[in-house]
Amino acid sequence: MTERLRFYQTGSFAVRNRLLPVVDASVQSDPGRANAITSGHRACQGCGEALGARYALDAAMRASGGRMVAVNATGCLEVFSTPYPETSWQIPWMHSLFGNAAAVASGVAAALRVTGRDDVRVVAQAGDGGTVDIGLGPLSGMFERNDDVLFICYDNEAYMNTGVQRSGATPPAARTMTTPAVGPHPGAPFGQGKDLPRIAMAHEIPYVATATVADLRDLEDKVTTAMSIRGARYLHVLVPCPLGWGSASRDTVRVARLATESGLFPVFEAHDGEVTSVTPIRRRVPVEDYLRIQKRYAHLFGEPPATGVIAHIQATADRNIRRYRIEEAPV
């Protein structure tokens, strides 16, 4: 009778639902998951990137049957995972430079293909700086050549490894060390920054998707979809950074959830340059709910609060909601 009944208490929101058949369980619920990045790494408490990387790579490991190599750009993920003499990676993994992860991955893919090992899949990963700024040239090259690489950007919206400086992915009004909360227009300026998922889509590569650490099943589904496709694929994962965002370490998932529920971070997927599905907002919240729990926006809530700036950010969320049609789903 449980087959007929489509209600499972936590549905697919939680990591697992004991009432669901094992085949429907998330990769993360599996005690035998790859733990591609394992304990002992030096990420900060509550690190969204460490979490997102394990979510994504474990899913990719399952999808590839463990036949996978990873290339990593310089950044937090690289530094906290491989300080000599210890590495947290349990998969074949390589770090070269900050800006070249996509090109290195292209080379790896080419080598695997030419040596008859193209059952081994290539995943490249970088933070937002290594993706949207310094790594964009090689990334764009990897896209346009349609190299068989899944590139995952763990977006924490600034250069965190160097101590929180603005990147091309830093949102307007956010305080960083290079966009400090001083002067008449505190924080990062409006009207700047790159929307890399859309840039990726403009390359008309087979698959582009966004995801967050707040929706594990969605993230795993997208990795699985991406791994079922050959060619250049791009996954943009929002990974809150407690240190850089000034959020509580325990709130990492919550902040990511509010980013999507406010409309500020639209979750969607696109095939061949066209949006093919979106994740509707479930419980819409005003952007203020998202902004308030992050110290990087604390200057917006002084006396008096920066209502104009908050309204401007709300307008961005509203535009996303229109653009991707992610209106609240009917219950």
Partner: peptide, 28 residues
Amino acid sequence: GGCEYLNVDSEFAAMSAAIGASAAGART
């Protein structure tokens, strides 16, 4: 034969792709 020819986007990418290819076991 048995050679992948990559038209890359810069010399930086050329050497980077060579790094990846070599690390994956290809003569580059």
